[in-house]
Design a protein around this nucleic acid. Structure first.
Lengths: 243, 243
DNA sequence: TTGTGCAAAAATCTCGAGAAAAAGTATTGA
DNA sequence: TCAATACTTTTTCTCGAGATTTTTGCACAA
């Protein structure tokens, strides 16, 4: 049977599923550890210690860190080594607002240019998401829902032809992933995501760009409000204070 | 006397005027050579040959190349080395349209949040630009005008608080710089830039975000049209054909 | 003439050691 | 007790050599 060739959007910049070089391997491991919080924001990244942990040479790890600077997950301080990029509420607001703007624009272009195959992919992604939403009340299928939610949003803007918008969205998505982990400790805000997604699908298929963008803006805006309810202490211990 | 502390926007990510490490030095030299066309788009970047030319070790040059991947001026092909990022008309259109969107949004935020000091900076930048425009007919002060034009656009969005928008604009600006060099060989399109800038200033100071954004969109859109008049051969020999 | 397979060569990727710089510590003087 | 200075230690930065992979060239067979 033909595989569902859903165009991967957020990961469009990293199409390699398996790292071939040690640099890529170290890059992926480091990125995962940063996103998942094992390496805390603001933490100093000593090459001597890390090369031991990841089992690569100093130069190799150094190169991997340079690649992470591209994703803005690591900051380089001249001759004072590398650090994990700091986190703050203001930064998350900036990320979310910028992501909202880019994603709305991408959605508009998708609506303007998407063909029949794209519509089919979109309906399929929505269907899978709906199925996952039914099981969501159990509380166990959360990861499944997260993944399908991500794919639904990916397919929404898949028909957007702008590589740069997708590139920037990819960066912002990985950035937001760090903050999303923080909110996992909190109970989710009770909101009717299913109706939001359904309205989004309906407006998109009707090629109503203005309404679709408005719904998407509300949709992402709620995420922003959810994060604002986090206590400020979540960001205080992250070494965000420059020093 | 107090220096005009015009907030540098496009270069906000690279605040170091003088490189302290050899990596940064090689990074800057490489970036300049790519932007100015000495290293042609699609060209293969052999480490063995380049480390000889730039006078650094292999690992150092390698790290500099990794940093250039962040700016999307160099692409890394798994285990097949590095190449200068290709150029194409479609890519330039994408860059310009994305830049237009981001810059309009930044201008809106600037208009919403800018204070008196920002207004003062803006008027100063406009005045300097006007002076340069008067001398522009001589044809000798072109670089001076380019620089002041850049600063004027920088100050326009200086009051925008979003670090991410500015970061992305910085990347797009360096990208566009490559293409701008191509259009230098052509005569500029006769357009009344002074009136455009004046209208832009007027609308901005009047805090009319919609009109200011519209003018800016037209302003950048003309650049797009100018590039479209370039012969296709400019991009044909750049190895843009995927291998 | 064209396609396949092997082998040589070039380039890339990786590692450890040495030099330079920054951070931390102890000592001395007021 | 506090501050400034010199020294020690840690960390970063840089370089060249070796292993692995990719590319190229050539011979051979259909």
């Amino acid at each position: 049977m033909p595989k569902p060739k859903l165009t991967v959007v957020y990961g469009a910049d990293a199409p390699a599923p398996e790292p071939k070089t040690l640099v890529e391997s170290a890059y992926r491991n480091l990125r995962r550890d940063i996103i998942e919080g094992r390496l805390q924001p603001g933490e100093k990244l000593r090459v001597e210690h890390l090369k031991d942990h990841y089992g690569v040479g100093a130069g190799t790890l150094r190169e991997a860190l340079s690649l992470l600077v591209a994703d803005a997950l690591v900051v380089s301080q001249g001759q004072r080594g590398f650090r994990v990029a700091p986190m703050s509420l203001a930064d998350f607001q900036d990320i979310t607002r910028t992501r909202l703007m880019l994603e709305c624009e991408a959605l508009r272009q998708s609506i303007a240019l998407g063909d029949d195959a794209w519509e089919g992919d979109l309906m399929a992604a929505f269907h899978r998401l709906s199925r996952a939403e039914e099981k969501l009340s159990d509380g166990e299928a959360r990861e499944e829902w997260e993944e399908r939610n991500r794919i639904f949003h990916e397919v929404l803007i898949a028909a957007c032809p702008s590589r740069w918008i997708k590139h920037f969205l990819s960066i912002l998505y990985h950035q937001a992933e760090r903050y999303r982990r923080l909110s996992l400790y909190r109970k989710p805000i009770p909101r009717n995501v299913h109706e939001e997604h359904e309205a989004l699908l309906k407006a998109t298929l009707a090629r109503d760009a203005d309404q679709a963008a408005a719904i998407l803006a509300d949709h992402i805006g709620l995420t922003l409000k959810a994060m604002e309810q986090l206590p400020a202490e979540f960001f205080a211990s992250n070494g965000a204070s420059g020093g």
